[in-house]
Structures are given as C-alpha cells and as structure tokens.
Amino acid sequence: MIKAGIIGGAGYTAGELIRILLHHTKVNIDFVFSTSNAGNKISAVHQDLVGSTEQHFTDTVNSNVDVLFLCLGHGNSGKFLSEHQFSNRTKIIDLSNEFRLTNDAVFQGKEFVYGLPEVYKEHIQKANYIANPGCFATAIQLAIAPLAHHKLIKNNIHVNAVTGATGAGTSLSKTTHFTWRDNNFSYYKPFVHQHLGEINQTIKQLQSDYSNEVFFMPNRGNFSRGIFATAYTEFKGTQEEALQLFSNFYKDAAFTHVSEQPLHLKQVVNTNKCLIHVHKHGNQLLITSCIDNLLKGASGQAVQNMNLQFGFEETEGLQLKANFF
C-alpha cells in the first residue's frame, strides 16, 4: 500500500479523488489538507462520502507520503510547493494548469511530465512529477491526436465544446448560480480559452509541420458534469479509413474507445472513459469526443497517471459505471 496526500481538499476534484482512492486497493489516504476546513469531517463537505470515511481535514502535511495530489486553484501549486517541502521520493500530480506547458514544466528542479496517457504513457511511467491535463484539453486532444500522429492535419480545426457547471469549480459566481444556469446556454472565452496552449503543444509534438489554428468555442451547459466536444477539419480519406485510423490509434488505450454510433453524455458521466465517434461529410471529418470533466478530465485521469507511475494496473480503482439511467 502507498500513502497519498491531497492538497485543496474541499473542491470538486478533491472530492472525486477521495471517492476513488477510498476504494483503490493499493492506496491509503494519509491526509486531506484544507486550511478552511481543518478539523471538520471530510464527509461534512463531501456529503456523498457519509458512511464511507470518518477522516477529518487537516492543516498539516506528512512530507513523506508516496504521492501528493495538488487540487488547488490555478496559480497556487507553485506557491504551496515553495512553502512545503516533501521527500525526494514523493511523486507529485498537479491538477492545475501551472506546469502543463513546456516552458513552465521545470519548477525548483522538479520536471513535470504532461499526463495524457494515450499519448505520453511511456514518459508518465518514468516520471516523478505529472502535470494533469485540463478537462477541455483532454477531450479535444483525444479527438485530434490520431490525425496529428499520422501527420494528417493540413487545415484549421474548428471545435465546439460544452461543459457542465462543475467545470467552474465550487466558488459561486453569476454564471454558476442555479437561476442563471438553469434552462440557459452561453459561450465564454471564445478563441482564447487557456487550454488552447496545451492542445497546440501536443499537436505540434505529434505533427511537427503543423502550422494551422484550432478555433475553439467553449460553452456552458445547464447540466452538472460532462464535456461534449465536436471538432471538424478537412480529411481526404473515407469514413471507413477514418474509423480504422482512430480504432488502431486507441486499440491499446485503457479508457478511450471508438464507437461506431453517435454519442451522448450519459455514456461517460461518472466514468474515466473518453468515447470517440467519427463522421465524414463531404471533405470534412467530424470527430465527437465525450468525457466526464471531473473524472477523465481531472481526478480520474490523475489516478490513472498515478497507477502508471507506480506500476499498478492502469484501470485500478477506475472501473466505474456510467449513470446511464
């Protein structure tokens, strides 16, 4: 058994991480750090865990844990690591955007590896420090990666994706308030979303001659969780060739699967799956990608990366059923 510590324990991603690790056969949760909730029962905040754990939040850390998960707001991970020292053998998985780009990947001598298992599995297995991908970035990269791997992106890529309210975190704002979000739909950060940096970085690493743009329109949906993304770009092959290309690329992937049928969110919510569907129309290839933003887009993928780092079965603790009905 390994010991895990969680920093920033009161948020949605930490709640999902605790839920997964409580049922992981190789992990004990050593501590869950939260300065605002220190001394309180974890289940008092994450109420789905009533009866599952009697642990309390703490404002102290164990510097010798085997793995540390950082579930802090963007920009706070580096500050926390500067103020707290951990053992050289402690593996760190950061769920913020702080270390995802190559120029930001080295921090205080720690080199963070980008944690998208379908593309960087061998690097993850050797890494001590992981930068967990963003939720939109995960869905979009998994839609595009097979084309980039085969050097087939010759034109701009247009992406439209909608996320549930949990993507905005637990802090209340006008656009997360129930009376605003319910029966409503809107876009935000058109063409400039922060996940574009990591998306373009991965495409460029897979296809070095890539010189086009990803035009990304993120949307807010009136549901709690999930991401439904559609991307389209020019593709000269047939429908059957596209299906074969994507199926071959993901044939050994533990959680990413190609479906011959159109997708919907209920197939992936509450799972660590990414489902992909391809549809050819004229000279355009439409790729649909669906994930749970809190699991494959955050905490589930973080545990998947931890499993790879420690040599556990990649699927350990992540055999979760979709809330289909």
Score class of each variant (00 low, 15 high):
M1Y: 07
I2T: 06
I7K: 01
G9F: 02
Y12V: 11
Y12D: 09
A14I: 02
A14K: 02
E16S: 11
I18A: 05
H24E: 06
I29Y: 02
D30R: 12
F31Q: 03
V32K: 03
G39R: 07
S43V: 12
H46E: 03
D48C: 05
S52E: 15
Q55Y: 01
Q55A: 13
V65C: 08
G73R: 07
G73E: 09
G75T: 08
G75W: 11
N76D: 09
N76R: 13
S77P: 04
S77C: 04
F80W: 05
S82G: 15
Q85I: 11
S87E: 03
N88C: 08
N88K: 13
I93Y: 01
D94Q: 02
D94L: 01
S96A: 05
V106I: 15
F107I: 07
G109I: 13
K110I: 07
F112R: 01
V119P: 04
H123C: 05
I130C: 09
A131G: 00
N132P: 00
F136A: 03
T138P: 00
T138L: 01
A139E: 12
A143I: 09
A145T: 09
N156S: 08
A161N: 03
T163L: 14
A165S: 13
A168M: 04
A168P: 02
S171H: 05
L172E: 08
T176I: 07
H177M: 05
S186K: 07
F191S: 12
H193Q: 00
I199Y: 02
I203Y: 03
K204Q: 10
Q205M: 08
S208H: 14
E213A: 07
E213D: 14
F216M: 12
F216K: 04
F216D: 05
P218L: 14
R220G: 13
N222T: 10
F223A: 06
G226S: 08
G226L: 11
F228L: 12
A229V: 09
T230S: 12
T233M: 14
T233C: 14
E234S: 13
G237V: 06
G237N: 11
E241S: 13
E241H: 12
L243S: 08
L243G: 05
L245M: 13
Y250F: 15
H257K: 14
H264V: 11
L265N: 09
V268W: 04
V268Y: 01
G282M: 11
I291D: 01
D292A: 01
N293K: 01
K296F: 02
A298Q: 04
G300C: 09
M306H: 04
N307C: 08
L308A: 12
Q309A: 10
Q309M: 15
F310S: 11
F310Y: 10
F310T: 08
F312M: 13
E314W: 06
Q319C: 14
